[in-house]
């Protein structure tokens, strides 16, 4: 996949700011998209028109188990989140629901990527190409089962 970057240089972006609690009653994916990142970035919707990758710090998606959070991002057009680390339920929801790719990166890659950089992600080679800067980084490979679920297109399509 290929796309431009929205960068949030902070740790602990929680599910309450990704998709605030009052909207938990909504379940239509397009309706959830309207409220994505409402708790922290009023410009998210204009940014996501030209971007499909979020790059951020540690513990992304901490807090609640709401699957609404990866759904809201995915339905807005986000295809991958590159983070130093993820909260466990957000990571699992992203994979099992096949909403977006949660990719762990190291500190050096994190600081090399800037807002609006264009990236090309090749999960078969565990490689991230920065087309804008003409650089290549490695990504942490998906653990065995996670890789298979992603390849199948989500938990329900995976045959153990």
């Amino acid at each position: 996949m290929k796309g431009k970057v929205i960068k949030y240089e902070q740790d602990n972006i929680d599910t309450d700011v990704i998709l605030p609690g009052p909207y938990l009653k909504l379940h239509e994916h397009s309706e959830l998209a309207e409220h994505a990142m409402e708790g922290m970035d009023p410009d998210f919707h204009s940014k996501v028109k030209n971007a499909s990758i979020i790059v951020t710090g540690n513990n992304f998606g901490c807090g609640s188990s709401r699957e609404h959070a990866p759904i809201a991002l995915s339905a807005s057009g986000i295809e991958a989140v590159l983070a130093l680390s993820f909260a466990r339920i957000f990571y699992r929801n992203s994979v099992d629901g096949a909403y977006l790719l949660p990719i762990e990166i190291d500190e050096k890659t994190y600081s090399s990527i800037s807002e609006n950089d264009e990236l090309e992600i090749d999960t078969t080679k565990n490689e991230i190409k920065n087309i804008t800067k003409n650089e290549t980084y490695s990504m942490k490979p998906f653990p065995d089962l996670i890789g298979k679920i992603i390849e199948a297109g989500g938990l329900f399509k995976y045959k153990p």
Binding site: R66, E67, I89, R92, N93, D96, L155, F156
Partner: peptide, 9 residues
């Protein structure tokens, strides 16, 4: 705790 895809499964 889990999300609703896992609970559905």
């Amino acid at each position: 705790g889990l999300g609703h895809t896992d609970i559905a499964y």
